[in-house]
Computed example of a mutant assay.
Amino acid sequence: MVTCKETRAVIIALHKKGFTGKDIAASKTAPKSTIYRIIKNFKESGSIVVKKASGRPRKSRKRQDRLLKLIQLRDRGTTSTELAQEWQQAGVSASARTVRRRLLEDGLVSRREAKQPLLFRKNIRDRLIFYKRYRDWTAEDWGKVIFSDESPFQLFGASGKKLVRRRQGERYHQSCVMPTVKHPETIHVWGCFSAKGVGSLTILPKNTAMNKEWYQHILREQLLPTIQEQFGDEQCLFQHDGAPCHKAKVITKWLGEQNIDILGPWPGNSPDLNPTENLWSILKRQVDKQKPTNSDKLQALIMQEWAAISQDVAQKLIDSMPGQIAEVLKKNNTANTDSLHQLHVIVNKSL
């Protein structure tokens, strides 16, 4: 609201006589917010003159900024140029750069889309069954589980993209580039761990695919010694996903003969439930830092860095399981209450 100099002078005169902003507002001299702003300006500057705002005037009002935010949230993939065009239809003539600034003010930053497995209705149902079955498990309960997984490691950049800080003209400086090859050699590994620490890690021979024969060999030579070392005669559960070689009849029979109980039912297409995924990320970062230049060095570093992972790191990953399950259930419940209610009915019938 714009106030004339005489009105501002009256407000300041009353303020000097000891009247509060509330008292002055009762006289209907000006709106309360305006009175408080004038008094504040006087206290800071000692003048009743309102300072003119410096710089270019803002092109949009708060209501228009809120509209821009709603347009972006309606379709997260809309570009700043497209948003500027839609905003123009609402009466705001602004550049794509201005659009980006407004969105940044609202905490909306541009990032690459996160990749997540595509989940179908059965996947969602199975995941909810898993969450409900284990939502009351404590970190101590999860400490009795030995998790396993397979993962590929690639020579030259196993962990994907990496950010570097460089000066102008340093784009291809040796310290700012990641060497690449057209067909990077890939090493496949299998590993297991529990709250007691990392277990065995095995590297599959080159050009060897994981099948039921190789998997049984790994379980016999790698899993059994790890269970004996970490749990002894204590009861534990073994986790593996639903890969075809894991579900083979010969594997199920062999595990039964070894009296190894399976954590289940493990939902399909759900690598995010397995804390081993986080362990792989840690391992790959450590290996990448040392920039192996050939397959032998890569394999040696994988084994070396795996052995260097502390029991404390493994314990923290396991301890995070109850919180992760609770958080996912909370988000699911608030995201789509109606559809999840229907799924919970299915889940309850399945338990």
Rank of each mutant, 00 (worst) to 15 (best):
I38Y: 05
G77R: 15
L70K: 12
K69S: 10
A53Y: 07
V109H: 11
R112P: 09
V49G: 02
R76C: 09
I38N: 06
G91Y: 00
A94G: 00
Q72S: 07
R101M: 00
T34L: 05
G107T: 04
R37N: 09
G77P: 00
I35W: 02
F42V: 00
K32S: 08
K122G: 04
S60H: 01
A84S: 12
T81P: 06
R101N: 12
R101C: 01
R112Q: 11
L108C: 07
P31G: 06
T81H: 10
A114Q: 15
R101G: 02
A96V: 05
G55A: 03
S60P: 01
T29K: 13
K43P: 01
V50L: 14
I71S: 02
T78K: 07
S47W: 04
I48S: 03
K51N: 11
L67C: 13
E113V: 14
E44S: 05
S54I: 07
L67V: 15
A84L: 05
R121T: 08
V109I: 15
R37L: 07
R66Y: 04
R76Y: 04
R63S: 11
I48G: 04
R100C: 12
R102A: 05
A53G: 07
L67H: 12
R112W: 08
G77Q: 13
I38V: 15
R121E: 12
S54Q: 13
V49L: 13
G55M: 03
W87Y: 09
A84I: 07
I71T: 02
T79G: 04
T81N: 14
K40I: 03
A114V: 15
E82Q: 14
G77D: 08
V92R: 00
F120K: 14
S93Y: 05
K43Q: 12
E86Y: 13
E82S: 12
Q72G: 01
W87A: 09
G77H: 13
Q116V: 10
K59R: 08
Q85W: 09
L103I: 14
K43N: 14
R58P: 02
S33D: 11
A53Q: 10
L68M: 09
L73Y: 00
